[in-house]
Amino acid sequence: SPPKPKTIVLPPNWKTARDPEGKIYYYHVITRQTQWDPPTWESPGDDAS
Rank of each mutant, 00 (worst) to 15 (best):
S1A: 03
S1L: 06
S1F: 15
S1V: 07
P2C: 13
P2H: 15
P2R: 09
P2T: 15
P3F: 15
P3E: 15
P3V: 15
P3G: 14
P3M: 15
P3C: 04
P3Q: 15
K4S: 12
K4Q: 03
K4N: 09
K4G: 00
P5N: 15
P5Y: 10
P5W: 02
P5K: 14
P5R: 12
K6P: 05
K6R: 11
K6I: 11
K6T: 09
K6E: 08
K6V: 13
K6S: 14
K6A: 11
K6W: 05
K6N: 12
T7F: 15
T7I: 08
T7Q: 12
T7P: 05
I8Y: 10
I8M: 15
I8W: 12
I8Q: 11
I8G: 13
I8V: 15
I8K: 12
I8N: 14
I8L: 15
I8D: 08
V9A: 08
V9E: 07
V9R: 12
V9M: 15
V9F: 13
V9N: 15
V9L: 10
L10E: 00
L10S: 02
L10N: 04
L10W: 01
P11T: 02
P11I: 01
P11V: 02
P11M: 05
P11S: 04
P11L: 06
P12V: 08
P12E: 14
P12G: 05
P12W: 06
P12Q: 07
P12R: 12
P12C: 01
P12Y: 09
N13T: 09
N13P: 02
N13V: 03
N13W: 09
N13H: 11
N13L: 11
N13F: 14
W14M: 02
W14T: 00
W14C: 00
K15V: 15
K15H: 09
T16D: 04
T16R: 11
T16A: 12
T16L: 13
T16G: 08
T16C: 07
T16E: 11
T16H: 13
T16N: 02
T16F: 07
A17Q: 01
A17S: 08
A17R: 12
A17K: 09
A17C: 09
A17M: 11
R18C: 10
R18D: 01
R18A: 04
R18G: 01
R18M: 10
D19M: 08
D19S: 10
D19G: 07
D19Y: 03
P20I: 08
P20W: 05
P20G: 11
P20C: 05
P20S: 10
P20L: 07
E21G: 12
E21Q: 07
E21A: 09
E21L: 04
E21H: 02
E21K: 14
E21D: 09
G22E: 00
G22T: 00
G22R: 03
G22M: 02
G22A: 01
G22F: 02
G22Q: 01
G22P: 00
G22L: 03
G22C: 01
G22H: 04
K23L: 04
K23Q: 06
K23W: 01
K23I: 04
I24W: 09
I24Y: 05
I24A: 07
I24V: 04
I24L: 14
Y25R: 02
Y25H: 04
Y25E: 00
Y25W: 00
Y25D: 04
Y25G: 01
Y25L: 05
Y26M: 02
Y26S: 01
Y26G: 00
Y26T: 02
Y26K: 02
Y27R: 07
Y27I: 10
Y27L: 03
Y27T: 08
Y27W: 08
Y27Q: 09
Y27H: 06
H28A: 00
H28N: 12
H28K: 00
V29M: 13
V29C: 10
V29L: 06
V29S: 12
V29T: 14
V29P: 06
I30S: 05
I30H: 10
I30M: 08
I30E: 06
I30V: 08
I30P: 10
I30C: 04
T31S: 09
T31N: 01
T31Q: 02
T31Y: 01
T31C: 00
T31I: 00
T31A: 02
T31V: 01
T31H: 01
R32G: 08
R32M: 09
R32A: 06
R32Y: 07
R32W: 01
R32D: 11
R32I: 00
Q33K: 05
Q33C: 07
Q33F: 00
Q33A: 09
Q33L: 04
Q33R: 06
Q33M: 03
T34P: 06
T34Q: 09
T34K: 03
T34G: 05
Q35G: 02
Q35W: 02
Q35T: 11
Q35I: 04
Q35L: 05
Q35E: 03
Q35M: 10
Q35A: 08
W36C: 10
W36P: 14
W36V: 13
W36F: 15
W36I: 14
W36N: 14
W36A: 07
W36Y: 15
W36H: 15
W36T: 11
W36S: 15
D37H: 13
D37Y: 06
D37V: 12
D37K: 11
D37A: 11
D37C: 10
D37G: 08
P38H: 11
P38C: 07
P38T: 05
P38K: 09
P38N: 02
P39N: 05
P39Y: 02
P39R: 00
P39F: 01
T40H: 14
T40V: 13
T40Y: 09
T40K: 05
T40S: 13
T40P: 12
W41Q: 15
W41E: 15
E42Q: 06
E42W: 08
E42I: 07
E42N: 08
E42Y: 03
E42P: 13
E42D: 04
S43L: 11
S43P: 05
S43V: 11
S43I: 10
P44R: 11
P44L: 09
P44D: 10
P44C: 04
P44H: 13
P44E: 10
P44Q: 10
P44G: 09
P44F: 02
G45K: 12
G45Q: 06
G45H: 02
G45I: 14
G45N: 13
G45A: 13
G45S: 12
G45V: 08
G45R: 12
D46N: 10
D46Y: 04
D46P: 10
D46T: 06
D46L: 11
D46E: 09
D46V: 11
D47V: 11
D47W: 06
D47R: 09
D47T: 11
D47G: 12
D47N: 07
D47P: 08
A48D: 13
A48L: 10
A48Y: 13
A48M: 14
S49P: 13
S49Q: 11
S49E: 06
S49V: 02
S49G: 07
